[in-house]
Design a protein around this nucleic acid. Structure first.
Length: 268
DNA sequence: AATTCCCACAACCGCCTAACA
DNA sequence: CTGTTAGGCGGTTGTGGGAAT
């Protein structure tokens, strides 16, 4: 027996949303909120849509403060760096770019950014040396390594520990960028959490003051990892530059390659 | 002017997981 | 503890519009 469908597919409209549907959905949510139940919402709002579809439409298009249009170089750098560190965790990446949705970033990455990085625009299959150099400078204008966020910390947060356990001491050491074991410590700190609120305070203090992040920090590992990214970036005036062009390019070309090749460590 | 091709983006699908009864 | 359900996520597909032929 398969999984029960989330809605009656026969009586549900699919395809692009009309402006009338948008208006209905927006007005309903403005008035009553989502009620925490997307499945029931379309019926209440008088829409012949699947609840999931409504949710997606709201989150990706109708919700206030959605940013449409061109991505800035700064946003490009954040996306590249996070992609290199944590892969295609679009929701985490989106959490670092206010106003951008995971779908937006995913589309942008797949259709533009990846090609830009690889230099494989349709009319530019093989860029010459000069073009290649220009591209690299566009995305990574700085040549000096900047502090990176702790990649092993990210991995362990993502894969194992949802959050550093309460009342446990950690020393987090940040190595230098560039990978390959070229360790150059740029900061370290001892963290001790008496309770989860203190833990949150600490995260906040370390630089992740994004409300959405703080709100969802309790939620689990993924968001915690996103926060760890901010943690390292918080004090940096420049945009983070975790990986050089070649490293990201390699990751794109060879998805199976190990993300974890730097010398950060995270010890109890 | 008509047709084909390509690209960008919106939307869908199916899986995973947390919450809850 | 177990089964069910809904929310969330990432991958994939569909569609419309513009460019090229």
């Amino acid at each position: 027996m398969g999984r029960a469908p989330c809605c009656d597919k026969a009586n549900v409209k699919k395809g692009p949303w009309s402006s009338e549907e948008d208006t209905k959905l927006k007005e309903f949510i403005d008035k009553f909120g989502t009620g925490g139940n997307w499945i029931a919402l379309p019926h209440k709002a008088g829409l012949k849509r699947c609840g999931k579809s409504c949710r997606l439409r709201w989150l990706n298009y109708l919700r206030p403060n959605i940013k449409h249009g061109e991505f800035s170089d700064e946003e490009d750098r954040v996306i590249c760096s996070l992609f290199a560190a944590i892969g295609s965790r679009w929701s985490i990446i989106a959490a670092q770019l206010p106003g951008r949705t995971d779908n937006d970033i995913k589309n942008y990455w797949n259709t533009k950014l990846k090609k830009k990085l690889l230099g494989t625009a349709p009319s530019q299959k093989k860029p010459n040396q000069h073009q290649h150099q220009q591209q690299q400078q566009l995305f990574f204008p700085s040549t000096s390594p900047l502090p990176s966020f702790p990649q092993d910390l990210l991995s362990s947060l993502l894969l194992q520990a949802p959050l550093p356990p309460v009342s446990e001491q950690y020393q987090i050491s940040f190595g230098g960028g560039g990978g390959g074991g070229n360790e150059q410590s740029c900061s370290s700190s001892e963290i001790s959490y008496g309770n989860k609120d203190q833990q949150l305070d600490h995260y906040e203090h370390m630089g992740f003051n994004d409300n959405s992040y703080i709100t969802t920090l309790y939620g689990g590992s993924a968001t915690a990892a996103a926060g760890a990214g901010s943690l390292a970036w918080g004090s940096s005036e420049l945009a983070p530059l975790e990986y050089d062009y070649e490293e990201i390019k390699q990751l794109i070309s060879n998805p199976s390659s190990n993300y974890n090749n730097t010398s950060y460590y995270f010890c109890g």
